[in-house]
Amino acid sequence: MEVTMTVNGAKVSKDVEPRTLLVHFVRDNLGLTGTNVGCDTSSCGACTVHVNGESVKSCTMLAVQADGQEITTIEGMAQANGEMHPMQKAFQENHGLQCGYCTPGMVMAATSLLKENPHPTEQEVRNGLEGNLCRCTGYHNIVKAVLAAADGMAEV
């Protein structure tokens, strides 16, 4: 089945089986391997991408459901000149990652959260990221990074 969608600003068309999950579509068909698979059961958030600007677990969505939609993956966050997105910078500056496996999903979930709630409290950040698991950091620096990004992004 032919699907066409906009991924990180560029239009792509591919022929896929209806059962292809969006996460496999971006990783295997488009070669965008920044989006990780952690649990494959919609629990961990490693596979989080944006669909029309909202965070979605791409292991629980079919590529055919994304036909005609706008998808953003972690590869689409930095600017064309390589300058990182403020959220990515905030993760780097606040030591919001260790092994980095959860980080693409965290960054995507966190930017979606700030879009809905630009000035969250610490508790709101923790609740907003409850669908994203991190085995390394203990979350503390991730929360710090998101709060810092919220401050910084407000100035932009």
Partner: peptide, 9 residues
């Protein structure tokens, strides 16, 4: 229900 990403879908 679930988490924000679940609630988006």
């Amino acid at each position: 229900v679930g988490d924000p990403s679940v609630r988006h879908r």
